[in-house]
């Protein structure tokens, strides 16, 4: 399957600051790809390069088989980079009308995208009177105006209230199931975990991991709370690697062996007060990866 976005060795330097440092990234057709990283990690700079707004210092970038910023590529890409930017004196409808003029899109499509983001009722109001959430939704409407194959959204749930965030995530998930490819940046781990198929983690300008979300979360673990803990920990190493997390023990073992683990503990005279399976949260993995990288850098 040919990748829609292929990035290798991408670097962007601003004076003495290396904003993006040798990033490799691949987005496959039809997937929702989460580009995850803390603020200032280099996500927006990378997305700006993908949309042709800034030129890379070095590296290879192919978007939809062409160069970023080419008319043919832009015509098949919808994007919202950083905060949504529109003309404050124009209505939401007029803002979309003029974007439709630039892109050669029909009037009917404007009505469709307004409906899609639930802005039809306020479409004739000035953009300057919109709430942050409405501005964000208009930004997504503008990104979908060209009925694009590839949608690039930079932190699309910023500023939305909980209900707005839920609706936006559902919309993005639907875009993925419709066969569109979505590249979504976020610093919200839960968001990426909920809606993305694959995730790339960037920290301090460098990619630290790129995997399927399930793959990244790795094997499931057994969570064990038992007393005495030291004896339990010693015994559990027979089943797999054990690490302590707060006052529980995490054992990397097939969850199907839970009964066997429980029996072994009880037979050894260890009191078991809790035993269940747990998936590693993306949040844990993110902090493991970014902390490990920082330690490596310091070392």
């Amino acid at each position: 399957m040919d990748a829609l976005v292929e990035v290798s060795g991408l670097t962007k330097r601003y004076g003495g600051t290396l904003a993006v440092d040798g990033v490799d990234l691949t987005v496959l057709p039809g997937e929702v790809y989460g580009f995850l990283g803390p603020n200032g990690a280099g996500k927006t700079t990378t997305l700006r390069i993908l949309t042709g707004l800034i030129a890379p210092t070095s590296g290879n970038v192919r978007v939809l088989g062409g160069r970023p910023g080419d008319a043919g590529v832009l015509g098949r890409t919808g994007s919202m980079i950083e905060s949504p930017a529109f003309y404050p004196y124009l209505s939401g409808l007029d803002n979309l009308r003029l974007l439709a003029e630039y892109a050669g899109v029909s009037r009917q499509r404007i009505d469709e995208v307004l409906e899609l983001v639930d802005l039809t009722d306020r479409a004739k109001d000035r953009f300057s009177t919109y709430s942050l959430g409405m501005k964000q939704r208009l930004g997504v409407a503008a990104a979908l105006l060209k009925d694009p194959e590839l949608v690039i959204l930079d932190e699309p749930t910023n500023g939305l209230d909980p209900a707005g965030m839920r609706d936006m995530r559902r919309l993005i998930r639907e875009l993925g199931t419709e066969g569109r490819t979505v590249l979504l940046s976020s610093h919200l781990l839960g968001e990426v975990q909920q809606i993305c198929d694959r995730v790339g983690i960037i920290n301090a300008g460098r990619m630290v991991a790129e995997h399927n979300v399930d793959e990244l979360r790795g094997e499931q673990e057994l969570v064990v709370r038992a007393i005495p803990r030291e004896d339990a920990q010693r015994l559990l190493t027979r089943f797999g690697s054990v690490h302590q997390y707060d006052d529980t023990l995490r054992v990397q073992v097939d969850p199907a062996k839970a009964a066997e683990v429980n029996r072994a503990l009880v037979e050894a005279g260890i009191d078991v007060s809790e035993l269940h399976t747990a998936e590693r949260a993306l949040e844990d993995i993110f902090f493991e990866l970014t902390t490990a990288k920082e330690k490596t850098d310091v070392g």
Binding site: L53, A71, E82, A85, F86, Y87, L99, Y102, A103, K146
Partner: peptide, 22 residues
């Protein structure tokens, strides 16, 4: 100048036409 202060330049440059055309 308004295109820069409002940030709308990035919005219109990510449509279809080239920068020179716009």
């Amino acid at each position: 100048g308004g295109e820069y202060t409002w940030g709308t330049l990035k919005t219109i440059l990510t449509q279809r036409p080239r920068r020179g055309t716009i």
